Amino acid sequence: MAISRERLVGVAATSPSVLLLFLWMAVPLGMTIWFSLQRYLLLQPGANTFIGLENYTFFLQDPAFLTSLTNTLALVGSVLVITVAGGIAMALLLNQPFFGQGVARILAISPFFVMPTVSALIWKNLLMDPTSGFITWAMSSVGLDPIVWFTDWPMLSVILIVAWRWLPFATLILLTALQSLDEEQREAAEMDGAGALASFLYIVLPHLARAITVVVLIETIFLLVIFAEIFVTTNGGPGLQTTNLAFLIYAQALLQFDVGGASAGGVVAVILANIVAFFLVRLIGKNLDGE
C-alpha cells in the first residue's frame, strides 16, 4: 500500500526529534550497562577489565542493598500516606470560602517550589537543630527535652522534610479536582439527610479518586530517587538507617570510587523503578477505566 505524501512529510518532520529523544535515553543507558560489566575503579585508571555480571552479583548480595531497598519503600510509602491524607484535608480546607483565601492558597502551595537542598537546610538548621531550632525552643517552652532529630529519629526526619515539600503538590492537584465537583449533587445529598462524613465518603472521595491516582503515580516516580534531602541532612546515616537506593549508588560511585558497581546498581534501580511504574500504570488504568 502506497504511503501518502502527507504521511511522509509528517514522518520526516518528527524523525529528528524522535531520534534525538532516543539517543538522549539510549546513549546514557547503554554506557551505564557497559560500565556495569567492567571492573572500573576511579583509583585505578586504565586498569578496566571485562568481568561480566560480577558487579551485579556483588551489588545484589551486599547487605546494604536490602537495607537501602527497605528504606526506599518505607520512605516512598510514608510520604505517600502523609501527602495524600494531608492533601485531601488541606484541599477541603482551602476550598471553603474565607477571608484571604487566595493568599492562603499561594502560601500553602509555595513550599513545592523550594529547591530540595534549600528545604533540607531550612529544616536542618532552623527547625530541627537540637540547640537553636524552632522545634527545640517550642519543646523547651513546655518543659520537654529536645530531640536530636537526625540521631534519634533519622528516617522520620527525612520523611517529614520530603513530605513537607510534596504536600503542596498533592494539595494543588486535589484542590483542582475538588473545584470540579458538582455542588448540586452534594446539596441534594444534604437535603436527603446525609451528614458531612457520609457526604465525604460517598461523594467527595470517589470524585477525587482519579486525582489521587495521579498524585500517587507522579510522586512515586520522583520519590524513588530522593537524594538531596538525605545528602544534606543525614548523609545516609547513622549507619545505613537513611540510605536509600539513590544514595547507595552515589556512595558506591563517588565515595568508594567503584563506577562499575555503581553502574550495576543504577541498572538494578532502573529495573525496579520500571517494575513499580508498570504495576502503578496498570492499577491506575483499571481505576480510570472503571469510572
Rank of each mutant, 00 (worst) to 15 (best):
M1R: 05
A2I: 11
V9Y: 09
G10V: 06
T14G: 05
T14Q: 08
T14Y: 04
W24S: 15
W24Q: 12
M25Q: 08
P28C: 01
S36L: 07
L37A: 14
P45L: 12
T57L: 07
Q61S: 15
N71C: 07
N71R: 06
N71M: 05
L75T: 06
G87C: 09
A89N: 04
A89P: 13
A89L: 15
N95I: 15
Q96C: 08
Q101A: 06
A104C: 13
P111Q: 14
F112D: 00
F113Q: 02
V114W: 11
V114H: 12
P116T: 15
T117K: 13
A120P: 10
W123C: 01
N125I: 15
L126H: 12
W137E: 15
V142D: 01
G143C: 00
L156N: 12
A163N: 02
L175R: 01
A177D: 03
Q179W: 10
E184T: 09
E184L: 11
Q185G: 03
R186E: 12
A188L: 06
A189G: 06
D192S: 11
F200R: 00
L201P: 07
L205K: 03
L205Q: 04
L205M: 10
A209S: 13
T213S: 13
V214I: 07
V215R: 01
L217R: 13
E219C: 07
V225I: 10
I226L: 01
F227K: 00
F227T: 04
I230W: 00
T233P: 01
T234C: 03
N244H: 08
A246I: 01
I249K: 00
L254E: 10
A273F: 04
F279K: 08
L280W: 07
R282M: 14
R282P: 02
L283Y: 12
L288N: 05
G290A: 15
E291Y: 13
